[in-house]
Simulated scan of single mutants.
Amino acid sequence: MTEATGKPAETGRFPPVIVMGVAGCGKTEVGSALARKLGAEFVEGDAFHPPENIARMASGIPLDDEHRAGWLDTIAAEIAARTARGATVVATCSALKRRYRDRLCSLNPNLVFLHLALDRQASWERVQGRGGHFMPSSLVESQFADLEPPSADEAALRLDALLPVDTLVEQAAAFLRGRPGT
């Protein structure tokens, strides 16, 4: 049974998933709910940031490609290790640029991205309104400056991040049902 719905978790093989998007789009909430629905292991990408990345962002300084490289490699390795032992994995990661997604896919060729899309104002309001997170609302603009939405040739689904979480999870699960597992 899933905690969120009281319904049984889905069974079957699903490809590894990254719930992606700019700050405030709901990656953690949607990703953890999707993991429960699929009976998957949830990986919170922010937990893999080194302390220097967190300090940088908390100070209002955006990460650049160099600062993100090791973080992306760590997330990719974590997903690969878990899928190698047979787990279904749902992870979160901003994965803002195509080259970041390609880097994540280098260890996980079946990786699927769920892009939670929303506008700058909604992102800013959400980030401004949340407490206890290292990402200040002053960095929202830098997130949009880096964002390269997935292209048609990527294994990705764009979702409207303003929809209810249950709706997003259902849309994501329907998309994943049609994809080959690991």
Rank of each mutant, 00 (worst) to 15 (best):
M57Y: 01
M57A: 08
S59R: 04
S59W: 01
S59H: 01
I61C: 00
P62L: 03
D64E: 08
D65F: 01
E66D: 14
E66P: 01
R68I: 02
A69N: 01
A69M: 00
A69D: 10
G70C: 02
W71I: 02
W71N: 03
L72Y: 01
L72G: 00
D73A: 12
T74H: 01
T74E: 14
T74V: 03
T74Y: 00
I75V: 13
A76M: 01
A76C: 07
A77Y: 00
E78C: 09
A80Y: 00
R82Y: 01
T83Q: 08
A84D: 09
A84G: 07
A84Y: 04
A84F: 00
R85V: 10
G86F: 02
G86L: 08
T88P: 02
T88M: 07
V89K: 03
T92K: 11
C93W: 03
S94P: 09
S94F: 09
S94Y: 10
A95L: 06
A95E: 10
A95G: 05
K97R: 14
K97E: 11
R98T: 14
R99Q: 13
R101A: 06
D102P: 00
L104C: 02
S106W: 02
L107Y: 01
L107S: 15
L107E: 09
N108V: 04
N108H: 10
N108K: 09
P109W: 13
N110H: 15
F113L: 08
F113D: 07
L114H: 04
L114R: 04
L114W: 02
L116S: 08
L116F: 11
A117Q: 15
L118W: 09
L118N: 09
D119M: 14
D119N: 15
A122R: 14
A122G: 05
R126L: 12
R126M: 12
V127N: 04
Q128L: 13
G129A: 12
G129H: 09
G129I: 09
G129F: 06
R130G: 11
G131I: 05
G131K: 15
G132D: 13
G132S: 11
F134R: 00
F134T: 10
F134I: 06
M135V: 11
M135S: 08
M135R: 03
P136F: 07
P136S: 08
S137D: 15
S137I: 05
S138K: 03
